[in-house]
């Protein structure tokens, strides 16, 4: 359980040697990933209980990503696609990507196939990527009161391009509430990274 502990503590230096050691001893990449996911789950709970804030959560997520980079070549791609394919991004002119990155890392840890388009993403880039990747879920974030309504433009862009059907839109970020999400035509709202994983998993059940 050392790997899990390092994820929780954010032991960016310790994680890689531990994984190497685990692999040498014959553990499978899937097994090690499962342990890291457990760690991230606990981090999510610590965040929910306000024992962890953004810096601590970021450090844990970065630690897990370091581990995941080592494991990725050893993991099967199909599994991730089965769980669901997701693109996420922050709307144009919103440069806040911390929450977004946390969501992406939490989703990746939960086994989703994830494409993080980053911050400041114009609607046309969301559309191009959707056409290319055919995602099950599109996650859009807006942190500022000044950019929240841009999310509506993204959803409308998908409608106009005929790309809205068969896809779920999840919105998040400080600018949102359940009501505002509903008003702009999103399928769901997730208030933080841990909730996002639950919401995405719930939506994927609806798909099946």
């Amino acid at each position: 359980m050392e790997i899990k502990e390092e994820v929780i503590k954010g032991g960016m230096e310790a994680i890689r040697p531990l994984i190497e050691e685990g692999l040498k001893k014959g553990r499978t990449a899937e097994d090690i990933l499962a342990e890291m996911i457990e760690g991230m789950h606990e981090v999510g709970e610590l965040f929910e209980r306000k024992e962890y804030y953004v810096p601590e959560t970021l450090l844990s997520a970065h630690t897990m990503m370091l581990g995941l980079e080592m494991l990725r070549p050893l993991l099967s791609v199909e599994k991730a696609a089965e769980r669901g394919r997701v693109i996420v991004g922050a709307v144009e002119s919103d440069i806040h990507d911390i929450g977004l990155n946390l969501v992406a890392m939490f989703l990746e840890a939960a086994g989703f196939e994830i494409y993080n388009l980053g911050r400041d993403v114009p609607t046309k880039v969301f559309l191009e990527k959707a056409e290319e990747l055919d995602p099950d879920v599109v996650g859009v974030s807006a942190m500022m009161s000044t950019t929240a309504l841009k999310v509506r433009e993204v959803i409308e862009g998908f409608e106009k391009a005929g790309l809205r059907d068969g896809r779920f839109f999840v919105v998040g970020g400080a600018a949102f509430s359940e009501e505002l999400a509903d008003e702009i035509g999103a399928d769901a709202y997730a208030q933080d990274a841990k909730k996002a994983v639950e919401v995405f998993q719930e939506l994927m059940k609806r798909r099946k």
Partner: peptide, 11 residues
């Protein structure tokens, strides 16, 4: 950048 800054705080 906020992301990096918050990590800097810890490391």
């Amino acid at each position: 950048g906020l992301n990096q800054f918050l990590l800097d705080m810890l490391v």
